[in-house]
């Protein structure tokens, strides 16, 4: 699984990959940046990644809420279908307004109406409704899976960037120390 990450791909669905830095010195020379501007650049990248992460997490929450909703729809359609042909009506208490309930008898029914959105409601036979809902459920699950993969990819980029920042910083500290040591040694001699 670890091999499915960064170096091979340069982006995923519009998210740029963070390049892994083999050697800090070479990275700085090649990019032509000094330590501070390279740190600033990396920090900015990190912020951008965080922004995308928040967006994706919101999408994930939406989908995670949508899936049980569809499952509930399937459940009630199945219940209606099970009642069909038993000669019994389905008696249900339903909310007419917030906190106010009334009782309904749903006699043998072959169809339900699905709210399709955009102010459109369509009558479906129970079988058709089940098929449609099932398809919606599968789509939602598939989108969630893609989204989770996107998030994984994104988090890898965040980690790479964080590690790179730490390494550039450490490299700088190291560099200063050896310069200081060299200067001190020069003074002594």
């Amino acid at each position: 699984m670890a091999s499915s990450s960064t170096s091979a791909v340069s982006e995923r669905r519009g998210i740029p990959a963070a390049a892994f830095v083999e050697d800090v010195q070479t990275y700085l020379t090649q990019s032509g940046l000094d330590v501070n501007s390279s740190l600033a650049f990396l920090q900015e990248r990190l912020q951008q990644y965080k922004l995308v992460e928040m967006k994706l997490l919101a999408q994930q929450r939406d989908l995670q809420a949508k899936i049980p909703d569809i499952e509930k729809c399937l459940d009630i359609v199945a219940t209606l279908q099970a009642k069909k042909g038993t000669g019994e009506a389905l008696i249900a208490d339903f909310e007419v307004s917030e906190g106010i309930y009334s009782r309904a008898r749903i006699e043998d029914t072959d169809s339900v109406c699905l709210w399709l959105g955009a102010n459109v409601m369509l009558e479906y036979s129970c079988d058709e409704a089940t098929n449609l809902l099932q398809k919606n459920l599968e789509n939602a699950k598939a989108s969630l899976e893609v989204l989770v993969d996107d998030l994984h990819f994104l988090r890898d980029q965040v980690t790479v960037t964080q590690v790179t920042i730490a390494r550039v910083y450490n490299w700088d500290v190291h560099q200063r120390r050896s310069k200081q040591a060299a200067a001190a040694a020069a003074k002594d001699s």
Binding site: R155, V160, R177
Partner: peptide, 23 residues
């Protein structure tokens, strides 16, 4: 997962992948 101190241990691509996996 920030690294502290000024140690000179080189981070290889393999290490980076391990860190990613851990994350």
């Amino acid at each position: 997962m920030q690294q502290g101190g000024g140690s000179g241990t080189e981070v290889t691509w393999e290490d980076q992948q391990n860190i990613n996996r851990f994350g």
